[in-house]
């Protein structure tokens, strides 16, 4: 018996810890929403949500843990109700519950949803029950069909994307370094362009300038260089 009590204590302690974590995260998010709404970025907002969702998961894990006794088998039984303020209770609830009074206790210990929520749920349930079963079945079938279709399309698209990605990776060669060098050497230094006969079409100027060298001879380059240099000299003093 004692062992079970200890287990319960430990489980409650763990739950409390998780819930406090969760509360802190939610409070931080609310604080940021209220005070930093101007500078808050969507990704960081999502990050906060991710933290909360993770904490919810851990909380549920703790509840499902083998060592946690089945909480639904336990009953909370209020023994004494008192309208007088209770300091200890106030502290434990951070000032939300001042007294364990007749007014508040039923709300605190309720196991059903809020009356508002309950009412709305009832409305929905009523609406759902009004639909004739055949129509409901039809609608369910139609929805299933649509969802399956969408799912199929997504799967197909994913296959296509993956194929494309692999194809792209295989044919990644979009540039050749040797070509880069050839082109830049040609444009910058005239590599592989010089040996050709040089004359601009319809331009008398360059035609005259290359009067010296014999076209197509590689050895002509040096010869003309000397020639050109001696020509240059008088202008360049």
């Amino acid at each position: 018996m004692q062992r079970e009590e200890k287990q319960l204590d430990a489980a409650l302690e763990a739950l409390l810890q998780r819930i406090n974590d969760l509360k802190t995260s939610i409070r931080t998010l609310l604080f940021r929403l209220e005070n930093e709404y101007a500078s808050l970025s969507w990704p960081s907002f999502l990050d906060s949500y991710a933290v909360i969702s993770g904490q919810m998961n851990t909380l549920l894990k703790v509840m499902k843990n083998d060592k946690t006794p089945l909480l639904r088998n336990l009953i909370v039984l209020p023994l004494v109700l008192s309208p007088d303020p209770d300091e200890e209770l106030k502290q434990a609830t951070e000032g939300r519950v001042v007294a364990f009074s007749h007014d508040i206790t039923p709300d605190m210990l309720r196991t059903k949803p809020d009356p508002d929520v309950e009412q709305r749920q009832n409305q929905f349930e009523q609406r759902a029950s009004q639909v004739p079963p055949e129509t409901a079945q039809k609608q369910i079938n139609a929805l299933n069909k649509v969802v399956n279709h969408v799912l199929e399309q997504i799967t197909h698209s994913r296959e296509d994307w993956e194929n494309e990605a692999t194809v792209r990776a295989a044919a990644a060669q979009t540039c050749v370094m040797a070509d880069t060098h050839t082109l830049i050497a040609a444009v910058g230094l005239g590599k592989n362009l010089k040996t050709l006969p040089i004359a601009a079409p319809a331009q008398p100027g360059p035609g005259r300038a290359q009067a010296g060298p014999a076209p197509g001879k590689t050895t002509s380059t040096i010869k003309t260089t000397i020639k050109a240099a001696s020509q240059v000299h008088p202008y360049n003093r």
């Binding site: 005239g190 362009l193 050109a228 202008y235």
Partner: peptide, 19 residues
Amino acid sequence: TPNVVEFLSELGCRIEFEY
């Protein structure tokens, strides 16, 4: 202007390559 080619030639420039 287009006669820059002539001008450069007169200066003693010679055409190295073209493309």
